[in-house]
Design a protein around this nucleic acid. Structure first.
Lengths: 146, 146
DNA sequence: CGTTAATGGTTGATTTTGTAACCAACAAGC
DNA sequence: GCTTGTTGGTTACAAAATCAACCATTAACG
């Protein structure tokens, strides 16, 4: 009832969103300006770069992105010759996606940017803060506690 | 270089975004289904509900939303008779926005939903975890440490 | 004053996302 | 082997976010 005991800064979904947006600004500029990529596109690129050849629906399960977003991101990356598709001879509905050399180069570059960017963010935190933050975020994101 | 020492689950902007999205799902359903609101709209509503009468650009400074989003959200809320505009007689460029009774009722309702939703999220955390999380998120979000 | 710049806010065009319907390939059960 | 249902993926259309240009008003300053 009292404005004091609830405000936007105290509402976790809002706070998380603000932190997410603020913290991704600098990385966004890189993949946007340097590669003209969208958020969905670098995500697909990273999935293939990190975990190797896989199908679109595997990316969907890991990332929880909707399949239409993935479909479009894959097309865009294919147009830029960052990945190739290969239809499964057993089950001809699905196709395996794999980075080309150009795709891998872009991934390697962006992964380094991401790593450095993460380091900058982490530098504002103490060790316990970082530890707790990562643990808690994984829980909230309902991610596998890898 | 080694895939092991960098993955998406370890990249803070990605992790923050996943947590933000997952944690806001249930609240989103309420403001969408119950009031047909957009994210921008409940945010404007909450700003006015929490902090009272203010101009669009004040909302912009507090929320970091772009002014076109705010402009459209304000129009939508006005159409639903959730707020009124009053032009400043001193500086006739700006106008003060204020919730109507209907707007306040919607705000009161949603604030209760938000509070309860927050409580559910917090219930998955220990006291220290919650404390650390809030502190750190405010820092990352570059919000005033209210 | 009169020109130029800045501010508060809106609008229109374009881009991106979300939703639903869809197609092709396969699976299950009879 | 023919329905019926499911899965992997795409496409068309509607909703929303972004970006640039725009008005109206006020401020700055010669």
């Amino acid at each position: 009832m009292n404005p004091e005991d609830f405000d936007l800064g105290g509402f976790l979904p809002y706070l998380l969103n603000q932190a997410a947006e603020e913290s991704s600004l600098s990385f966004q500029r890189v993949y946007k300006d340097r590669y003209g990529m969208l958020r969905t596109e670098w995500r697909v690129l990273f999935h293939l770069g990190l975990y190797g050849r896989m199908t679109a629906s595997e990316i969907g399960m890991r990332s929880k992105m909707h399949k239409t977003k993935i479909s479009r991101a894959v097309s865009a990356l294919e147009d830029r010759r960052f990945l190739t598709r290969e239809r499964d001879t057993g089950d001809r509905r699905q196709e395996y996606l794999e980075l080309t050399n150009a795709g891998r180069a872009a991934y390697d570059d962006l992964r380094e940017v991401a790593r450095k960017h993460d380091a900058v963010l982490v530098a504002t935190l103490s060790d316990e803060e970082e530890q707790t933050l990562r643990t808690v975020l994984r829980r909230l994101a309902k991610m596998d506690p890898a």
